[in-house]
């Protein structure tokens, strides 16, 4: 593992209506890690992820990316941390697949040649190069999720954050997205995946962070932390229940 790319210290967040969503979060994520962020609905996973690129501002504490506070340069933070949201349909902004992937690089004011090269590479990586001119509305659920990933990849992020990437996908769709996530990790990207069902991705994670009630309640190697998940509203994988090792969904 490399140096810490994400450093979260004393992070707390309260919504304007007074609800406390995060309390005293301390986390250090080294470059190249594959972190699985697990927790029941309402545990604070999505809120935490939105602090990583400055979409939400902490009430107290701070988030640093490669040593610099997120709030100091939001453009840098959003380029460094690519975020794939749960609902792919509401994050696709382009009228065609190509235009959607080009949206981020164009916002970064990169030269047209670089935008085109990055869009082509990202579409190739997620296997959508043959659909560049299609309307995103006509894509399947899995293809839309891959398009959302391509839109992030084209911005050359060091960290890829995926919020519930397997939601509403069938078995083939889950395997497809999982294989892309694993390939991105193998390619050197730092991966943070938030899920409420750990079974699909546990075999590939290098670390499991468990959240409940806006706090980190367990953090460590998946094999160690997995035993505690059921106490915090997350289903224990059947393999662990039977005393077996969790197999990859890609096997």
């Amino acid at each position: 593992m490399g140096e810490d790319i994400i450093t979260i210290s004393g992070l707390s967040h309260r919504y304007p209506d007074g609800r406390q969503s995060l309390s005293q979060i301390d986390l250090r994520i080294p470059a190249g890690a594959f972190v699985l962020l697990a927790g029941a609905n309402g545990a604070g996973k999505s809120t935490l992820l939105k602090h990583l690129n400055g979409l939400l501002t902490p009430t107290s504490g701070e988030v640093r990316l490669a040593g610099r506070p997120v709030g100091e340069d939001l453009r840098r933070a959003r380029q460094l941390v690519g975020m794939v949201f749960q609902d792919a349909d509401s994050q696709i902004v382009g009228e065609t697949v190509y235009d959607d992937v080009a949206f981020g690089p164009e916002n970064l004011n990169w030269p047209a040649v670089k935008v085109e090269a990055n869009v082509t590479r990202a579409l190739e990586l997620v296997g959508l190069i043959g659909m560049a001119e299609r309307s995103p509305h006509l894509l399947s659920g899995g293809e839309k999720r891959r398009l959302a990933i391509a839109g992030v990849l084209a911005m050359e992020p060091a960290v890829i954050v995926l919020d519930e990437p397997f939601a509403n996908l069938d078995y083939a769709g889950v395997r497809d997205i999982l294989s892309h996530i694993v390939a991105l990790h193998a390619g050197g990207s730092t991966i943070v995946v938030s899920v409420h069902d750990i079974e699909k991705v546990l075999a590939h994670a290098t670390r499991l962070v468990l959240m409940a009630g806006g706090r980190v309640v367990a953090d460590g190697p998946p094999a160690v932390v997995a035993g505690e998940v059921e106490a915090h509203g997350v289903r224990l994988p059947t393999a662990i229940r039977l005393g077996l090792e969790v197999a990859s969904w890609l096997a």
Partner: peptide, 12 residues
């Protein structure tokens, strides 16, 4: 959600 996604991709 769209606003958050656009902000995350440096719109603005």
């Amino acid at each position: 959600r769209l606003t958050a996604a656009m902000e995350a991709r440096c719109y603005g």
